[in-house]
């Protein structure tokens, strides 16, 4: 007999896997985006099960709130002037891609499941936001600053790409 948290965990896991399959296998790109949003919500639930509520909230804020909206804008900006192609390519290409992914799945599955990870029996406690902030600003200061620099450069770069495409100097 499974307890209630286990049943909810299985539901969240099912949601994540079904969302990933919808993302990959759906014919329309909008349906793929909706599947991606479903997957991200499922992964936020898994983060809650991993004692990381702050990461779960950041997952919903950044991925569901920002990145999927950005992809939706890209779809809408690139979409309206031509007939949307079906996402299915030739069956041969799909079969080859499927074989490659299945082979990589089997190989990595054997590697991951046969490895001896060092499990600690330490009692898992909830890492608070204060812990994450102390690590970020104490030990990981340089990567933090580099990430902010990367985001600034990428925003300026995307604006410059759009301006160059319009022919403005």
């Amino acid at each position: 007999m499974m307890s209630l948290p286990e049943i909810i965990f299985l539901l969240v896991m099912f949601l994540t896997m079904v969302g990933a399959l919808i993302t990959v296998l759906s014919g329309s790109i909008i349906y793929a985006l909706i599947g991606l949003v479903t997957t991200m919500f499922g992964i936020a639930g898994l983060y809650l099960y991993l004692n990381a509520p702050f990461i779960a909230m950041m997952q919903i804020l950044i991925y569901v709130g920002a990145i999927s909206i950005l992809i939706a804008f890209a779809i809408m900006l690139a979409g309206p002037h031509y007939k949307r192609p079906k996402e299915w390519t030739t069956p041969v290409k799909f079969a080859v891609s499927f074989i490659v992914s299945i082979i990589s799945f089997i190989v990595l599955f054997r590697v991951v499941m046969n490895a001896q990870w060092m499990h600690t029996k330490a009692k898992a406690f909830c890492i608070t936001t204060e812990n994450i902030g102390r690590v970020l600003f104490d030990k990981l200061m340089l990567p933090f600053e580099l990430i902010s620099l990367l985001i600034v450069v990428s925003i300026i770069g995307s604006i410059m790409l759009a301006l160059i495409a319009k022919g403005e100097k």
Binding site: M58, Q59, I62, Y63, A66, I67, L70, I71, F73, A74, L77, A78, I147, S148, L150, I151, V153, S154, I155, G157, S158, I159, M160, L161, A162, I164, A165
Partner: peptide, 18 residues
């Protein structure tokens, strides 16, 4: 990783429009 994904999505949107 979330920050890198956001930067990558912004750049990819610019490239897609171009």
């Amino acid at each position: 990783i979330m920050g890198i994904a956001a930067a990558e999505a912004a750049i990819a949107m610019g490239i897609v429009i171009l």
